[in-house]
Amino acid sequence: MHEFQPPPLLLRNGPGAAAILSAGIGSGALGVFAFAADAVPAINHLFAFWKPSGALSGVTTSAIVVWLAAWFVLSRRWASRDVSLLWVNLASGLMLLVGLLLTFPPFMDWLQAL
């Protein structure tokens, strides 16, 4: 006699989507902050949270704060929901691409020269 095996409970995709979208947001923020610090001397000065590391300390700390804050908010909102992962992935991929481009020095220089 076979024992009944219930099918595995499929987890909601919300928590995973929150982690992915927030990683995209954090990556985009890293690029935007790095570009702003490179292009505007006043922002560069503002981001020098710790003088020995200069603006790098503020750029990266701020990006991490944005990433973790986004993750916290999204994970609470999507904890028990299923969301459209296609749009989450598209948005995350776009922000990741923006982040990568805005931290690539030749692209930063080209953008500042416009």
């Binding site: 990683a23 990556s27 890293l30 790095a34 790098l56 931290t103 020095p105």
Partner: peptide, 13 residues
């Protein structure tokens, strides 16, 4: 200039 920023994508990812 590239290295100091791009490296930070890794721990987040």
């Amino acid at each position: 200039e590239w290295k100091e920023h791009i490296a930070w994508f890794t721990p987040i990812a």
